[in-house]
Computed example of a mutant assay.
Amino acid sequence: MTNEHITTYIERSVLATLRALIPNREVRSHSEARQVAEHQAIRLLELHGIEDGPVPVEFIADLPKIEIEMVDAPVSGASFWNGSNWIIQLNKHESYSRQRFTLAHEYKHIVDHNRADALYIGTRDVSPAEQAEQAADYFAGCLLVPKKLLKRAYYGGMQRTADLAAHFQVSEAAMTVRLRQTGIAEPAPRCTPRSAPFSRSWQYRMNHRTQTQGV
């Protein structure tokens, strides 16, 4: 097998590899669904040999059967199967950092395709759709701002949120969330309303209703 054929095989195996990390059973807790998302993000970085930031998330566009469209839309992004390829649409009017996050977020929806019902079963307080959106946000955060790389930068002296956001090419809001998720920053007081700057439950509902078939 030539190097070209080996590379093609690996690229075509990316989705299968990430989907294989989803347990073959119903996931009963949201914390486990988040762990799955983080494992998938780490594995995706490993597959592409990424060991430093900023993460070149644009490599997603180079994966087989993935097409990126820049569109004029009232929302941040969308993803769907068009019969031959996965289409990820990004709002062309939003900032580059936001588009990067949206790209990673929508790719997680593609990875979850046909498995979302087992991954996100909901609770009395959170619907399955909301869990799916939260997991996609978490995946995007883990992919764009890996815990290991964030701690390396932070404890190496880069401790201003704005500087970290610029280094990893994400928004300051996303960086603030990631600092809390990794335990570097203290969580917000319980009386402070939690923000959801990247919530896209509309997208999950659209994908769930259409039940498209993909690779």
Rank of each mutant, 00 (worst) to 15 (best):
T210E: 14
N85F: 03
H39K: 14
S13P: 06
S201N: 06
Y138G: 05
A118H: 14
R12D: 04
I66V: 15
R98C: 02
W86E: 04
A41R: 09
R180E: 12
Q169L: 12
T2A: 07
P193C: 02
Q134P: 00
S199W: 03
N82K: 11
S97Q: 08
L44H: 10
P54D: 13
E46H: 10
G122A: 12
R190Y: 12
S29H: 15
A37W: 11
G53T: 12
K65E: 13
I6A: 12
A132C: 08
T8Y: 11
E38W: 05
N24Y: 08
L63I: 03
A33Y: 05
P197Y: 14
Q131Y: 11
R28D: 10
T182G: 04
L45H: 13
R12I: 00
T161L: 09
P128N: 05
A116E: 13
Y9E: 10
F168I: 06
P197G: 09
K148I: 11
P54Q: 05
T102M: 04
V111W: 04
V177T: 14
V177Y: 11
E130Y: 10
T176E: 03
R200F: 02
V145A: 14
A136P: 08
L150N: 06
E172Y: 02
F168T: 06
A41F: 15
A135H: 03
L144Y: 02
T7Y: 08
Y107Q: 13
D62K: 15
Q181W: 02
E106Y: 11
T176K: 02
G83M: 08
G183M: 06
E67S: 11
G141H: 04
